[in-house]
Design a binder for these strands. Structure first.
Lengths: 355, 355
DNA sequence: CTGTTAGCGCCTTCAA
DNA sequence: TTGAAGGCGCTAACAG
């Protein structure tokens, strides 16, 4: 790899001049500039970012830690963050924590060693050791949390309006005539899962429907385990809920598998609404009603906030940015209206669906 | 951010000693080691990777360029590569080219500036300027191409056994009784798309089925455009093929949308097999028959090869590693057998499907 | 406008 | 086993 010195030698100028034409930091006379550019092209010179960073102590790099890049919600966030960062000349390096708090700690450390100027963090689902995040912030590296917001200490965050979104979905199911609705959640140790549960409860309450704790189906984020849970709880027709509200993609996949295993169809046998898109949800037969989170925007806004923190560390130093974006209800077939027979409120009779 | 100097000062030793305990490069007496470790903990010291890299000219970082991280095939590759790299103490930084050759060039340049020690590249679909890749290889940075292998010059590559895979899928459709099979591909400027087409042709030939060029439906990789194409070509029942073979995920999504728009159902109206998993393919009604590529393994193997090239630049210098992994046919409902009525070969009568 | 030079944080001889 | 010191490639003062 050629260095700035070699370029300077070939162009017959000093390294300072080369640096100036590369960075446009100071005007350079046209003839010298030309000679330098020629030398750069000839040597295929690429400035050594590492050396530059060491000198300027600016890497123009952001880190983003996601639990699992193969969950489609997260790559969308990354794309958003990447775009937001690139607009300001930053690049982002994306890494997977595999939902492990330990791995997350290592990655935090790795990113610090890499001298990223800021970190976008989507927490692992398992509880993170306290201080893991605040330690990096104390070191002067701004952190913005996305989607899964930690509790107990102040940190900027961007996520969806969890309570409203869950309320919206539950309202919709209620309006369609479903009364006995179970909520299928990931670990309730996650604040956003709890908030989604809260929205669900609020909606029931407003509608005067009794909340029953055993309609809260808490699982993990592995869809096989979820499927097993749902299979078991859906197997008895007598105790089966009329509809399911899933609070995220993996949960939804698990629930759909469980339903499938029990030979249940939606909406004929059971109404279905979920957070997050499932890639094929609109082609699914029936098409699935989803609460769509603005994943790309979450990434984009988070990057913006992070870059502002980097640019102006003093501004609003003691304030915490809390951005909550609205989710959108995309109504499709899986939540089609129920028509109840008079006097038999417990029996569920699905509307015939035109295709 | 504390530096090695501050640690040394606090521990009352020289920087050299600190470096030795951090890197384990030279034995250090237990008492000094303890003092140093204590100082590190106390200051929350993280070695400056940038400075270390500058000194050693080793960043222990790999770059991976993917066309679009939101296509689920690619994150799986990234996870594989990440795992392979991590096993050797390397981390990977993943970036999106958005299918743009220009952007890809910029990213190549960015990664070089970042001093990555090697690059995993999944080419953009649009034709890449010649020399773009060879230039980075000439600079001594090994490159391994994944999935989409460029032509015309030697470069290590890992991908699926395209021809065999397409042949496998086509054989399957033929065996199920479908004769008139259209292949829905992405741009045929991509070698792997051409090879998949070749496999399709081979299979037809072996079965004695005439190949018809207008059964090659070439599209791009945006599923809306694909859907429009399929909608148009599927609208006339008289000229409609009996089955579709899609060569990748985005293509499949487009084709499914097109079929849906035409009110066509699979396999009743049209048989369907596709490369790549579609997230919900097993829950889809009917479940979709897929040619599953070992995406994770492709990433893992590619990382291994790249690391070997980095470790032993001299070994097999003039050889080109060409790894082709087999795809797996996962038979589901969308390719269920056809039973034709006697004497009316053009009419397609699907088998009744048990659910 | 252009050249010279110190020093970013670290590793690694080399000497002690 | 430990300390001292040079230098990786670059930028930013500063001098000219």
């Amino acid at each position: 790899m050629p260095t700035i010195k070699q370029v300077a030698a070939l162009a017959g100028v000093s390294v300072g001049t080369v640096s100036h034409v590369v960075n446009g930091s100071v005007p350079v006379s046209p003839d010298l500039r030309l000679k330098v550019e020629e030398a750069i092209r000839h040597l295929d010179y690429h400035p050594n970012h590492v050396a530059r960073s060491l000198k300027t102590s600016r890497t123009r790099t952001l880190g983003i830690i996601v639990p699992d890049m193969t969950i489609s919600f997260f790559p969308q966030i990354i794309r958003g963050a990447e775009t937001g960062a690139r607009a300001k000349g930053y690049s982002v390096i994306a890494v997977n924590s595999a939902e492990s708090p330990e791995r997350q700690g290592e990655l935090l450390s790795l990113l610090r060693s890499q001298q990223v100027e800021g970190i976008l963090l989507i927490n692992a689902a398992a509880p993170t050791p306290p201080g893991q995040i605040s330690r990096v912030m104390d070191a002067g590296i701004p952190v913005v949390c996305l989607d899964r917001v930690p509790e107990g200490f102040p940190v900027d965050s961007v996520s969806v309006e969890d309570i409203d979104a869950a309320e919206l979905g539950t309202d919709h199911l209620l309006a369609q005539g479903y009364r006995d609705i179970a909520i299928v959640t990931g670990p309730l140790s996650l604040q956003n899962e709890r908030r989604r549960l809260e929205g669900y409860q609020r909606s029931l309450e407003r509608a005067g429907v009794a909340f029953s704790p055993d309609r809260v189906w808490q699982g993990n984020l592995r869809s096989e385990a979820l499927a097993a849970m749902c299979r078991e709880r859906l197997s008895n027709p007598a105790t089966r809920p009329h509809a399911l509200l899933c609070t995220n993609g993996p949960t939804a996949l698990g629930a759909l598998r469980g339903m499938n295993d029990c030979g249940l169809r939606t909406p004929e046998d059971i109404g279905f609404v979920t957070f997050d898109e499932l890639t094929l949800d609109d082609l699914f037969t029936p098409a699935i009603t989803t609460l769509v989170q603005p994943a790309y925007d979450i990434g984009f806004r988070a990057a913006e906030i992070l870059l502002e923190r980097i640019d102006q560390p003093e501004r609003d130093r003691d304030a915490v940015y809390t951005v909550r974006l609205p989710a959108m209800l995309r109504v499709r077939d899986s939540s089609k209206k129920l028509i109840r027979r008079d006097g038999r409120p417990a029996e569920v009779v699905p509307m015939r669906i035109k295709r």
